[in-house]
Measured scan of single mutants.
Amino acid sequence: MSRVPSPPPPAEMSSGPVAESWCYTQIKVVKFSYMWTINNFSFCREEMGEVIKSSTFSSGANDKLKWCLRVNPKGLDEESKDYLSLYLLLVSCPKSEVRAKFKFSILNAKGEETKAMESQRAYRFVQGKDWGFKKFIRRDFLLDEANGLLPDDKLTLFCEVSVVQDSVNISGQNTMNMVKVPECRLADELGGLWENSRFTDCCLCVAGQEFQAHKAILAARSPVFSAMFEHEMEESKKNRVEINDVEPEVFKEMMCFIYTGKAPNLDKMADDLLAAADKYALERLKVMCEDALCSNLSVENAAEILILADLHSADQLKTQAVDFINYHASDVLETSGWKSMVVSHPHLVAEAYRSLASAQCPFLGPPRKRLKQS
């Protein structure tokens, strides 16, 4: 649940008159999402009104509101027999009622949201009550392989729920002597030191190019640089560091992050930047690179990204790559990247197969709970 924001200063709310007192009302909304995959969808019983329910879910471990999704594969009634019906059901509720908006969509073979439908307002739910769409999607369109909505005969539904909580009022009075504290510009100011090479005390040599930097900042941000300058190493004695395995453009992006906490060109060089972040123990930059690479996972590059993640101990990226390969196994196994990995990294192939087997055979063990970014 997000923290209630402070109200904007009255002088910034309007260029008009300023009242002596004010009130700011925040209506709290808890948002969460749920993904439900139905394997072997074409084998569902086709009687009209037949119901399939998901397991229950909530916004978190401490949330007492429990929900589930309900599907009628062949419609709810005679009117909707040519459609799939989809509903959000409130299973248990400690209150007399709650209000919530919802959005349903289908994830296609690429994991993209399609055929989205959402409620136009927050509906009133009581325990045992459901709301949804009797005519969510035509069955003939859903079952047509050309539309790519049932890869490997799996129907994957994605649901986003927004639950309306209580409202909170914050009130106060205006004073004539309003003090406005300026925003912190530390990142910009440190970035200026790097860009202008002011007050530098060490030189970093990268592929024949020299960059002036500040030992204190490098040591504070990177345990690797800290070790170089702290001990009686040649880098500490000469205040000069030779860097041979990072390209200059990648190095500059890494230094921008060290000084400012930002990497504006990360998406263009996420793979190389991940390697640099791993070498210099820049954990936050490493996770930022993992996130960017996750966003660009595809059938063509899944094997290469899995190898990269394994090489640099990028655990979150590795998990996402394995899950992606499992979901698109029939396509990924035909790529040149996968065939190369079979020869060069057989242990990763074995890991992917083990994960695929456990996903398809849940009876082999208890269900695993899916539970950071600093």
Results as ranks from 00 to 15, higher is better:
residue 1 M to D: 00
residue 3 R to F: 12
residue 3 R to N: 02
residue 4 V to Q: 02
residue 5 P to Q: 08
residue 6 S to E: 11
residue 8 P to A: 11
residue 9 P to M: 05
residue 11 A to R: 08
residue 12 E to F: 13
residue 15 S to M: 10
residue 16 G to K: 14
residue 16 G to I: 10
residue 18 V to P: 13
residue 20 E to D: 08
residue 21 S to R: 11
residue 21 S to G: 03
residue 21 S to I: 03
residue 22 W to E: 01
residue 24 Y to V: 09
residue 24 Y to P: 00
residue 26 Q to I: 04
residue 29 V to E: 10
residue 30 V to C: 10
residue 30 V to G: 09
residue 31 K to S: 09
residue 32 F to Q: 08
residue 33 S to F: 04
residue 34 Y to C: 05
residue 34 Y to R: 12
residue 34 Y to M: 06
residue 38 I to R: 13
residue 38 I to N: 04
residue 42 S to E: 07
residue 42 S to K: 03
residue 45 R to T: 04
residue 46 E to M: 12
residue 46 E to Y: 07
residue 46 E to V: 03
residue 48 M to Y: 11
residue 48 M to I: 06
residue 49 G to V: 01
residue 50 E to T: 02
residue 52 I to R: 13
residue 53 K to A: 05
residue 53 K to W: 02
residue 54 S to I: 01
residue 54 S to Q: 00
residue 54 S to F: 00
residue 54 S to D: 04
residue 54 S to T: 02
residue 55 S to K: 15
residue 56 T to Q: 07
residue 56 T to L: 01
residue 58 S to C: 11
residue 59 S to T: 01
residue 59 S to N: 03
residue 59 S to L: 07
residue 62 N to L: 02
residue 62 N to M: 11
residue 63 D to S: 07
residue 63 D to Y: 12
residue 63 D to F: 01
residue 64 K to R: 03
residue 66 K to N: 02
residue 69 L to D: 00
residue 69 L to Q: 14
residue 70 R to Y: 15
residue 70 R to L: 12
residue 70 R to M: 15
residue 72 N to P: 07
residue 72 N to G: 11
residue 73 P to V: 06
residue 74 K to I: 10
residue 74 K to V: 15
residue 77 D to L: 10
residue 77 D to A: 05
residue 78 E to W: 10
residue 79 E to A: 10
residue 80 S to Q: 12
residue 82 D to L: 10
residue 82 D to E: 10
residue 83 Y to N: 09
residue 83 Y to H: 12
residue 86 L to M: 09
residue 87 Y to C: 01
residue 88 L to H: 01
residue 89 L to I: 12
residue 90 L to R: 05
residue 91 V to F: 13
residue 92 S to F: 07
residue 92 S to W: 14
residue 93 C to Q: 12
residue 93 C to E: 10
residue 94 P to G: 10
residue 95 K to D: 12
residue 96 S to A: 05
residue 97 E to G: 03
residue 98 V to Q: 15
residue 99 R to T: 15
residue 99 R to A: 14
residue 99 R to G: 06
residue 100 A to Q: 01
residue 102 F to V: 00
residue 102 F to W: 14
residue 103 K to W: 06
residue 104 F to Y: 15
residue 106 I to W: 15
residue 107 L to S: 10
residue 108 N to V: 12
residue 108 N to G: 13
residue 113 E to N: 08
residue 114 T to P: 09
residue 114 T to E: 13
residue 115 K to P: 15
residue 116 A to Q: 08
residue 116 A to S: 12
residue 118 E to Q: 09
residue 123 Y to D: 01
residue 124 R to W: 13
residue 125 F to G: 03
residue 126 V to T: 12
residue 127 Q to N: 11
residue 128 G to L: 14
residue 128 G to E: 09
residue 129 K to R: 07
residue 129 K to E: 15
residue 132 G to R: 02
residue 132 G to Y: 00
residue 133 F to W: 08
residue 133 F to L: 11
residue 134 K to N: 13
residue 134 K to Y: 05
residue 135 K to F: 12
residue 135 K to R: 07
residue 136 F to H: 12
residue 136 F to A: 08
residue 137 I to Y: 02
residue 137 I to C: 14
residue 139 R to Y: 07
residue 139 R to W: 03
residue 141 F to W: 13
residue 141 F to C: 09
residue 143 L to D: 07
residue 143 L to E: 13
residue 144 D to S: 05
residue 145 E to D: 07
residue 148 G to V: 04
residue 150 L to K: 06
residue 152 D to F: 06
residue 154 K to A: 15
residue 155 L to R: 00
residue 155 L to H: 03
residue 156 T to M: 04
residue 156 T to A: 07
residue 159 C to A: 06
residue 159 C to R: 00
residue 160 E to A: 12
residue 161 V to M: 12
residue 161 V to P: 08
residue 161 V to W: 15
residue 162 S to D: 07
residue 164 V to N: 04
residue 167 S to N: 03
residue 169 N to D: 02
residue 169 N to V: 02
residue 169 N to S: 03
residue 169 N to M: 04
residue 171 S to V: 04
residue 171 S to L: 03
residue 171 S to E: 09
residue 175 T to R: 05
residue 177 N to K: 04
residue 177 N to V: 06
residue 177 N to F: 04
residue 178 M to S: 02
residue 178 M to T: 02
residue 178 M to L: 03
residue 179 V to H: 07
residue 182 P to H: 05
residue 183 E to P: 08
residue 186 L to Q: 08
residue 188 D to M: 05
residue 188 D to R: 03
residue 188 D to V: 07
residue 191 G to Y: 11
residue 191 G to R: 03
residue 192 G to F: 11
residue 192 G to H: 04
residue 193 L to G: 07
residue 195 E to A: 03
residue 197 S to C: 15
residue 197 S to H: 13
residue 202 C to T: 15
residue 202 C to A: 10
residue 203 C to F: 12
residue 206 V to E: 03
residue 207 A to E: 11
residue 208 G to S: 03
residue 211 F to M: 11
residue 212 Q to S: 12
residue 212 Q to I: 12
residue 213 A to R: 07
residue 213 A to G: 13
residue 213 A to T: 10
residue 215 K to I: 14
residue 216 A to K: 00
residue 217 I to R: 01
residue 217 I to T: 10
residue 218 L to E: 01
residue 218 L to V: 11
residue 220 A to H: 02
residue 221 R to E: 15
residue 221 R to L: 15
residue 222 S to A: 10
residue 224 V to A: 15
residue 225 F to W: 15
residue 225 F to S: 00
residue 227 A to W: 11
residue 227 A to D: 06
residue 227 A to Y: 15
residue 228 M to V: 11
residue 231 H to Y: 08
residue 232 E to A: 08
residue 233 M to L: 14
residue 233 M to G: 14
residue 234 E to G: 10
residue 234 E to F: 13
residue 237 K to T: 05
residue 239 N to Q: 02
residue 241 V to A: 01
residue 244 N to H: 03
residue 245 D to T: 09
residue 246 V to Y: 08
residue 247 E to R: 02
residue 248 P to K: 11
residue 256 C to Y: 04
residue 256 C to R: 01
residue 256 C to N: 01
residue 257 F to W: 08
residue 257 F to G: 11
residue 258 I to S: 05
residue 259 Y to D: 00
residue 260 T to C: 05
residue 261 G to F: 12
residue 261 G to N: 03
residue 261 G to A: 13
residue 261 G to Q: 10
residue 268 K to S: 13
residue 269 M to G: 06
residue 269 M to Q: 04
residue 273 L to F: 03
residue 273 L to M: 02
residue 275 A to C: 06
residue 275 A to E: 02
residue 275 A to G: 01
residue 276 A to P: 01
residue 277 A to K: 00
residue 278 D to I: 09
residue 278 D to T: 10
residue 280 Y to M: 10
residue 280 Y to H: 02
residue 282 L to V: 12
residue 282 L to W: 00
residue 283 E to Q: 02
residue 285 L to S: 02
residue 289 C to S: 10
residue 290 E to F: 14
residue 292 A to Q: 15
residue 293 L to R: 09
residue 295 S to L: 14
residue 295 S to H: 06
residue 297 L to G: 00
residue 299 V to M: 06
residue 300 E to V: 05
residue 301 N to V: 05
residue 302 A to W: 15
residue 302 A to D: 01
residue 305 I to T: 04
residue 305 I to G: 10
residue 306 L to T: 02
residue 307 I to A: 06
residue 308 L to G: 09
residue 308 L to D: 08
residue 308 L to R: 05
residue 311 L to V: 04
residue 312 H to P: 01
residue 314 A to V: 06
residue 315 D to P: 13
residue 316 Q to P: 08
residue 316 Q to A: 12
residue 318 K to M: 10
residue 318 K to T: 11
residue 319 T to Y: 12
residue 319 T to P: 02
residue 320 Q to A: 01
residue 320 Q to L: 05
residue 320 Q to C: 04
residue 322 V to D: 12
residue 322 V to I: 09
residue 323 D to T: 08
residue 325 I to T: 11
residue 325 I to L: 03
residue 327 Y to K: 05
residue 329 A to D: 02
residue 330 S to K: 11
residue 331 D to C: 12
residue 331 D to S: 09
residue 331 D to T: 11
residue 333 L to R: 05
residue 334 E to H: 07
residue 334 E to F: 09
residue 334 E to V: 01
residue 334 E to Y: 14
residue 335 T to F: 00
residue 336 S to L: 09
residue 338 W to E: 00
residue 340 S to M: 08
residue 342 V to I: 11
residue 343 V to E: 07
residue 344 S to P: 04
residue 344 S to R: 12
residue 344 S to T: 07
residue 346 P to C: 08
residue 347 H to Q: 03
residue 348 L to N: 03
residue 349 V to G: 06
residue 349 V to A: 12
residue 350 A to Q: 09
residue 351 E to N: 08
residue 352 A to T: 06
residue 353 Y to G: 00
residue 354 R to F: 05
residue 355 S to Y: 08
residue 355 S to Q: 08
residue 357 A to K: 01
residue 357 A to T: 02
residue 357 A to R: 10
residue 358 S to G: 04
residue 360 Q to C: 13
residue 364 L to G: 15
residue 366 P to W: 12
residue 366 P to L: 13
residue 369 K to Y: 01
residue 369 K to T: 03
residue 372 K to C: 13
residue 373 Q to H: 10
residue 374 S to Q: 14
